[in-house]
Nucleic acid binder design. Structure first.
Length: 268
DNA sequence: AACCTTGTCAACCGCATGGGT
DNA sequence: AACCCATGCGGTTGACAAGGT
């Protein structure tokens, strides 16, 4: 496993791509389409590793790529989605048409993470120690970044929404993890506890996740919580809901909840 | 002008999964 | 079941640019 053999050949070019290489790659893919990366360099006449070719196409040459100037809306969406999904850049990128996972990852690491950190330190100074002590589960000043393994999102899981009225201190305590990120952003994720993620409905594709997040964001923007529309389409059994809602995955950190679900090996 | 520091981003790398045999 | 191949993902690196001294 690991590194595929096409990349271990000697004599392959590395580093920045030239215009000439870009043209060759783009024109080859325009004619033959994406895929078959392993044979592509040879067929196209490029002295590049197959993965380098794929990366160049996906992150730079693809015609639908939007470059630079991430708008305020996009930025806010990135923050929300990062809070919801953690470092799952490809999933986040899927919600931002024309943006690549690499671009979003870079933007987060260079801009948003710093801003979040600064915001957290401001809050640490402004919030009196006593009141912070009264909020046991809010991890407060520490930026919670979910460290994830590289797991491909090829299937989905849908998790039930929890109406806000049912949120009470005690067993199901939901904190707003996003205060660290600068206020009210993505409160919805924490309040609803969980939404849906991967696995269970393998024929739905990542569109399910897209749809669900869309609905959540919409309902949040509208200032009210709506019923989960996904439940109409995919009525899950009550027992399953119960199992989820009483499991340890619903602790006091929404992001961690999701990480647990995403990383869980138990999902079919 | 020269040097140093910091920020940005394209590209690389290792590890992972899924499918085919 | 075990193996290999193809491909995707996220973390990290390094080249370059911009800004500061």
């Amino acid at each position: 496993m690991g590194k595929s053999s096409c990349c271990s050949k000697e004599g392959l070019r590395k580093g920045a791509w030239t215009d000439w290489e870009d043209k060759i790659l783009a024109s080859y893919i325009n004619v033959h389409g994406e895929g078959k990366w392993r044979n592509l360099p040879k067929r196209a006449g490029l002295k590049r590793c197959c993965r380098s070719c794929r990366l160049r196409w996906v992150n730079y040459l693809r015609p639908d790529i939007k470059r630079g100037n991430i708008s305020h809306d996009e930025e806010e969406l990135i923050i929300r989605l990062h809070n919801l999904l953690g470092n799952r850049w490809s999933l986040i990128a899927g919600r931002l048409p024309g943006r690549t996972d690499n671009e979003i990852k870079n933007y987060w690491n260079t801009t948003l993470a710093k801003r979040a950190k600064a915001q957290a330190s401001i809050e640490a100074k402004t919030i009196p120690t006593k009141s912070r002590l009264n909020e046991p589960s809010k991890s407060s000043t520490k930026i919670e970044v979910i460290r994830t393994k590289a797991i491909r999102c090829s299937s989905k899981v849908m998790v039930p929404l929890q109406p806000p009225a049912t949120h009470q201190h005690g067993q199901h305590h939901y904190s707003n993890n996003n205060e660290e990120m600068g206020g009210d952003i993505a409160t919805i994720e924490a309040h609803n506890g969980i939404q849906m993620l991967e696995s269970l409905y393998s024929d739905g594709g990542c569109d399910l996740l897209s749809f669900e997040i869309n609905e959540l964001l919409k309902s949040h923007d509208g200032g009210e919580f709506e019923e989960n529309p996904m439940q109409e389409h995919f009525p899950l059994g009550e027992a399953m809901f119960k199992g989820w809602s009483t499991s340890h995955c619903l602790d006091d950190n929404g992001a961690t909840d999701l990480a647990f679900l995403l990383d869980a090996d138990e999902w079919p």
